[in-house]
Each structure stands twice: as structure tokens, then as C-alpha cells.
Write a protein that binds this DNA or RNA. Structure first.
Lengths: 196, 196
DNA sequence: CTAGGGTGTTACCGGTCTGTAACTTCCAGA
DNA sequence: TCTGGAAGTTACAGACCGGTAACACCCTAG
């Protein structure tokens, strides 16, 4: 009974939240709409009144995930207003904390692995949301005064993405344990280099 | 008609090869055993005479993948016998080449994303095969005379793993384009540091 | 030539999947 | 109190899934 989340709220919200949780835990193709609606304390007809298909529900879940990630960034800015470097270090800490939180990787990456049809509606939003996240990290690095901001941001992105899949494949005791060390080393190294 | 591979060979081999190809392209849950056997030019009964279940077929495919990867390592050793550093650079080049080969990431990582049941037979072999690959890369780094061989190997692993999912999510024009640059920079940096 | 094992064929089982139809119930707002 | 829309219920369609049974075939080893 781990998939609860049946607090009283509007059915659409319950369905969205439950679907996010279950997609994350069991994968997209591993969860049927019946299971979602049951866990959300409602029924299939209500789901199809709010979402025209399972695919649209998937897309909506991905967007909701991105919104939550965006809120995380805003929290960094609120916690260290103006101090971009502190925000970057906060990003590293937060990323590492989420690594050990659960053994499931990034929902977008997992969705991309599952939804292989090249024209699946989810693929477009995955790409656009990932690009937005990259842009945000690049901007943070640049505003933190780092010279090769793009390269650092991309390296950190790949490291984190890799750490997530590593946790998923070999567990949290594998290479991902070194993520903070790698990331901090990189930031220090890039800070040491000449700024543009 | 992209899923062919119906050359005349023993049915078991055809099934295994076809399944590897189709799992890679369409994901595990995206391919049914009927589709595999049809593409392999045989039928479902023959499949179940050679594999006791789809899960066992999946495991066998993963092992075959690992064997192919192992052959790649042997090729490095044959091409640059004794020169471990050259083999490491060859590894980087090969990894980068495979990145742009197709937009699908690592089969093991994809399988781990799809097969969420914690006791799925595939999860065990994924972990053991990934750990073997890590061991091999660590050994190569160590034999190349790098001091912090484990840290370099783990960093390179995460970078590659991350690059693979990046290709899968935003395409080959994203952060993964910088993979070689990142990897070579890391190797140079680790070589510059003091050796144990 | 014959026997037997590997293979192919067809049909089927029970279950699950997404998605829909038709109808009832409930509840809030006028 | 009445009404209209949102939500719940039941049943179903049509497809696909993994897996099995029973039987016909073919080809090679003896």
C-alpha cells in the first residue's frame, strides 16, 4: 500500500500526483491507468475526462516534475540571494542528496528510455525541459564568475546524469559516492582557470 | 522492415540476436515475444524451447551485450599491446564514436530503468556486469600509471553514462558533444597529479 | 530405410492494456 | 428547491501480452 496519496483534493490533482509517483517508482509502461486511478481514489472515466490519453497524462507529469525542479532552483536563489557561487554549491549538495534519496534515476531520462517512438509527444517536452535546465545551470555558472561556464555546466550535467543511472544500475555504493568530490573538484578547477 | 537479421543460423542464435537488436531499439517492454520470433524468422514455441521465459531471454541478451563489450576491450589490448595509456585514449575515442552511432543509451541502464521490480533477475546481472566493467576501467587506469585510478575511472564512467542519457534526451547536439574534451582534460589532469 | 530430435503450425488460455458508452449519484450554486 | 455539471459505476470493445498444448513436418544420424 505504498501508492496512496488519496488526500481529498480535486480528482485531477490527485490523478496527476499519483501518476507522477507511480511512474517514478514503477516506470511508465509498468503502470496502467486503472492502477493509477484506483490509487488516486477515483476511476478511469474521470481520468479520461481530464486527460485525453495516457500519453497526455505522461506529458503533464513530466511538466509537473520540471515545475518542481524549477521551484528547487528558486529555493537556492532565496537561500543565497545574490551569491551565485553559494547557489552552485547548494545545487551540488542537493543533487547528491537526491542521489541517495531513492534508487530511481531521472524521470525524464527514464521516460526517454521507455518511450522509444521518435515522434512520441513526451520526447519533445523532455528535450525542451532538459534544455531549459541546462540553460539555467549555464547561467548560474556564468553568473558565478566562471570562465568556461558552458563547459563546466555541461560537465556537471553529465556527471549528475551519470550518477543517477549508476545508482539505478549498481546501487548507491558505486561510483556515484564520489559525485560531490568530482563536482567540487571541477568547480575549483574551473575557478582556478582564467576568467573570460 | 528494419528488424531483419534472418540469416540462416540456428534458431536460438537468431532469436538472441534479434531480441538484442529489438530490445535496444524499442525497449524491453516495447517488444513482445511474438514480434521477436517473427523478426527472427521462427515462432514462439521455438523461443520457449530455448529460453524458459522472456525474463531469461532478457538476461541472456544482457550477457551477450557484455560479451561484445568485453571483446571491445580485448581489441584495445590487441591494438596497443602493453601501452595502457594508449588503450585508455582508445577507450575514450570508441566511447565517443558509439555516442553518435545511435540515439539509444546503454542497454543495461535502459533495462534498469524499465525493470523496476527489485528482485527482477535482470537487476542482478546488470549490477554484476556493470561492476565488472568498472573493475576493468579501474585496472586500465591504474596500469596506465595514474595515481587516483579509482577516482578517474569512476569519473569517466559517470561522464560516459551521463553522455549516453543526454544523447537519449536532448540528442547528439547537446552536452555530450563535449565528452571527448572533458575526458581528455580529466586524464591529463590526473596524469599531472602526483602518482602513488 | 528408419527413428528421433529439432522445428514449424495452429489454436488456445487467462490476463492486462487503453479507451469508450450509458447510466447513476452527488453536490454546489442560483 | 431545483438544476446542471462533475464525479462514480458498470460493462464492454478490441487489441495485445506471456506462455502452453497438440500435432505435423523435415532432416540428419544410425
Amino acid at each position: 500500500m505504498t501508492d496512496g496519496i488519496v488526500e481529498r483534493s480535486r480528482p485531477r490533482d490527485r490523478i496527476l500526483e499519483t501518476a507522477r509517483d507511480m511512474f517514478h517508482k514503477h516506470g511508465i509502461k509498468g503502470v496502467g491507468v486503472d492502477a493509477i486511478t484506483e490509487a488516486a481514489g477515483t476511476n478511469k472515466m474521470t481520468l479520461y475526462r481530464h486527460f485525453e490519453s495516457k500519453d497526455e497524462l505522461i506529458v503533464e507529469c513530466l511538466r509537473a516534475n520540471a515545475a518542481k525542479a524549477g521551484a528547487m532552483w528558486d529555493a537556492f536563489d532565496a537561500e543565497f540571494p545574490g551569491d551565485k557561487l553559494a547557489q552552485l554549491h547548494a545545487w551540488v549538495r542537493k543533487a547528491a542528496a537526491m542521489l541517495n534519496a531513492d534508487g530511481r534515476g531521472c524521470d525524464m531520462a527514464n521516460a526517454a528510455a521507455e518511450l522509444t517512438e521518435p515522434d512520441h509527444p513526451a520526447r519533445l517536452v523532455i528535450k525542451e525541459l532538459k534544455e531549459a535546465q541546462r540553460e539555467r545551470l549555464v547561467t548560474l555558472c556564468r553568473d558565478a564568475g566562471i570562465g568556461q561556464a558552458e563547459l563546466l555546466a555541461d560537465t556537471l550535467s553529465l556527471l549528475l546524469e551519470g550518477a543517477r543511472v549508476s545508482v539505478q544500475t549498481v546501487g548507491s555504493e558505486g561510483p556515484s559516492t564520489q559525485f560531490v568530490r568530482m563536482a567540487e573538484g571541477l568547480i575549483a578547477s574551473f575557478r582556478g582557470a582564467a576568467a573570460g
